[in-house]
Design a protein around this nucleic acid. Structure first.
Lengths: 294, 294
DNA sequence: GTTCCGCATGAATCGATAG
DNA sequence: ACTATCGATTCATGCGGAA
């Protein structure tokens, strides 16, 4: 019976990250305050200073991440004086100098984007999900996020086209012909690098940066049970709660007292709930869950 | 009765662009050869040299564009040694130094992306549509691209994966079903900065870089009738033919003789067709169409 | 006229092999 | 060591002919 741990730190993440050991994190999923956004809570970082502000943090993240781990950065540049600001692009270039590999850029297509109308632009309905890695070889569990195949398959895949057969028969016998059996029973396919998710708009107490499906998808893709997930800008704690539910250890850091308290309280409630109700396990093993709040 | 002109130049666009007068173009829509792609036809530009290769071209484009005009650049970085290449980001930064404003980045979500499976990444199903402007005030005709609500819902429903449907139904009342009823009253809505289009891969004679809907959408959005559209990498001529059909003047440049000849021939055929058949007008005015091929 | 099915192919990427 | 070529993998679309 293994134990799932959910740790929460209070304070500035540049400092708090130093408390974490090297190579201890399997996945980082976070949505840092965007430049000049959420001024009321984070004070707002000027677009020109954003890269300099983030570099010490990404340096620590690079240190704590396992060589097989992945860093998913949810970010989008804001409009400054009618132009898209370039700090995200500069950030990527600087992080590569720091030693990060920029493996991929996923697109989060927000199904219900923020309403509004402007004379010179349409509603912004997508955000960047930048994937960084410490090494070229990293853990990826693709089967965990397979999706149902498109409707076309039902009618089309019944009889495999002769071209497809020919195509692979021409190649030395190790191609499609061999795999026909895989295709006939096929009902799921691998996804692409575009994610379709709605923004979460149910909770009014906090500004949830992303819906639960978002960390859930990446946790499925890049970790297995008992791995450790980190969110250095925990905010409302979405990443932590999802990780916990999925039987992953997690570490969160939050600098805003109100958010910190909210997460803490919710964690404590959940712990008691588990004690009294003997909640069903997420995975196949019996689990006990504990929170360590500092 | 105004006349629509379709001009076609043969040669290297850096040189040919010099023949165009200052401030004469309302919209540039183009898809240059991506780094190291299309080697067989365009020779291929190494990722490291891409920015230097493009700078003289973008300088000329800045010159010929009207202050109220817009430049739409379709591009995507390829993977180099397991990482996304950074030349597109560097390109944006350099073009801003050149005087361009980077107004917006649209996403082209390709419904049918190239197949394949790799251990470290999923299929790439999106491309960038970078919007650059010469001035902060530019022409934009948003009403021209409003989406009919019925068609939108229809195509949207058709394309929704079963997961999406399930997910939406699972949400208590804020899901798809409820929203559909809200749309019934309205007839059109403004789109967002994400475009859903399939690539055209069925044409046997040539490979068009993008589907007709792509230039069509931007021509509607950024020009009116009798405006002038430029594509310095005409390729199969999609932009030119769409512009012509929409009663916009257009200028194309193409360096590959086979492509140039193909466009030329198609333009001539269309002209004759118009003479004999008295084709229905695109817009409300009577039009004659002429091609000037050099 | 619809619907259905056969068919070709697309700005891809990785790893192994060859010069 | 470094680059060039080749084989293997895989999903969705629209056209055109057939039912």
């Amino acid at each position: 019976m293994k134990e799932i741990k959910t740790e929460l730190f209070f304070g500035d993440c540049t400092k708090e990250l130093k408390k974490l050991p090297d190579n201890s994190i399997d996945l980082i999923v976070t949505s840092p305050p965007y430049a000049d956004q959420r001024k009321s809570t984070y004070g707002g970082i000027h677009p020109n200073k954003y890269v300099n502000w983030f570099m010490p943090i990404s340096k620590e993240l690079l240190r704590v991440l396992k060589p097989t781990g992945t860093f998913i950065l949810n970010i989008k540049e804001k409009v400054v004086d009618g132009e898209r600001s370039t700090y995200v692009m500069e950030l990527v270039l600087e992080m590569r100098k720091q030693g990060w590999f920029w493996t991929e850029e996923f697109i989060w297509h927000k199904k219900n984007s923020f309403p509004g109308k402007w004379s010179n632009r349409f509603r912004d309905s997508w955000e960047r999900l930048l994937q960084f890695n410490k090494a070229k070889q990293f853990n990826m569990y693709q089967d965990a996020v397979k999706v149902p195949i498109g409707d076309w398959a039902k009618s089309r895949l019944k009889n495999l086209s002769t071209t497809d057969k020919k195509r692979d028969n021409a190649k030395n016998g190790s191609g499609f012909g061999k795999n026909v059996s895989n295709w006939l029973g096929k009902d799921t396919v691998y996804p692409t690098n575009v994610l379709h998710l709605a923004t979460e708009c149910n909770n009014k107490n906090h500004s949830a940066a992303f819906p639960e499906e978002l960390p859930e998808w990446f946790i499925n893709l890049f970790t297995t049970e008992y791995d450790t997930v980190l969110d250095p800008f925990a905010g409302s704690g979405t990443t932590l709660f999802v990780a916990k539910r999925m039987a992953r250890n997690s570490v969160g850091i939050e600098i805003v007292p109100e958010y910190y308290d909210m997460i803490k309280e919710k964690l404590e409630i959940e712990s008691q709930y588990i004690l009294f109700e003997e909640r069903a396990d997420y995975g196949k093993n019996k689990l006990t869950k504990s929170n360590s709040i500092r």
